[in-house]
């Protein structure tokens, strides 16, 4: 029963958790004392506050095991997936500061509006364009082929928005498509099954395109799945550069 948990909790030490509260542009940090437990993620801390201290706290989560990318927040200044961030790894002097993800509008408290992130995913042509139908054979593709390896290195993105939040170019340039969308575009540029390569290269070459990236590599630094969007964006820069000379011929 829940009571048993609380009794154990009383004997434990507490941490101070500062949580951003507010709607839209208005907000402030509020402090909570939360019991420390041996097995405890940042999401567990947020959940504890909502269930035990302030029922009005808003946040978002779904799968709780790092697959859906719903629960990313700013934890002690850095964007992280909260469901798989153990508190002990990020606790700084007994303090945890939790804020919504950067570079996205806040809906309420810790829940950010990700729609712009996904709009840019589509704007970067992060969408497969088929060249075959369901009645054709599944193509034989050598998994060791160079372009496939390139895709494999970049495909396991869960669109959690952490790279987007870690990117200063996104913060400074509202048109910039951002690391995740461009990373996806790069996998498609390499996809031998895809039929929209030129359109995609054009889509990532505009005013908000891959060329705005300054290779700060905050995306690489913070991606929870160890992906490298900077390398993908560099790939796009290379391919568009090639097409630059082709178009000029």
């Amino acid at each position: 029963m829940g009571n048993a948990v609380d009794i154990v909790a009383e004997r434990e030490t507490h941490m101070t958790v500062r949580v951003w509260r507010g709607q839209g542009d208005q907000g402030r940090y509020e402090s909570f004392e939360v019991p420390e437990r041996e097995n405890q993620t940042v999401l567990d801390v947020v959940t504890w506050i909502q269930q035990n201290a302030d029922p009005s706290l808003s946040y978002r989560y779904a799968c709780r095991v790092g697959m859906c990318g719903s629960c990313a927040m700013t934890v002690n200044g850095k964007p992280r997936w909260t469901c798989r961030t153990h508190v002990q790894k990020v606790l700084d002097g007994g303090i945890l500061e939790i804020a919504p993800l950067r570079n996205m509008p806040v809906i309420k408290d810790l829940a950010a509006d990700m729609s712009g992130f996904f709009d840019k995913w589509v704007a970067a042509e992060g969408v497969f364009h088929p060249t075959a139908t369901r009645t054709d054979e599944i193509p034989k593709i050598d998994p060791r082929e160079e372009r496939r390896v390139e895709i494999d290195n970049a495909i396991e993105c869960i669109n959690c928005g952490i790279c987007y939040a870690a990117c200063d170019v996104v913060a400074a340039n509202p048109d910039y498509l951002g690391p995740a969308a461009l990373n996806r575009a790069w996998t498609l540029v390499n996809d031998q099954k895809d039929g929209a390569r030129d359109a995609r290269l054009a889509a990532v070459s505009g005013g908000g395109g891959c060329h705005n990236c300054h290779s700060q590599q905050g995306c690489v630094q913070h991606c929870p799945n160890d992906l490298n969007p900077t390398a993908s964006i560099a790939g796009l820069k290379r391919e568009t550069a090639k097409s630059f000379f082709k178009w000029r011929r």
Binding site: D136, I138, I155, K193
Partner: peptide
């Protein structure tokens, strides 16, 4: 086959 050829799964 649809997932592979039309949706873009690999």
């Amino acid at each position: 086959t649809e997932l592979e050829n039309e949706i873009g799964c690999f």
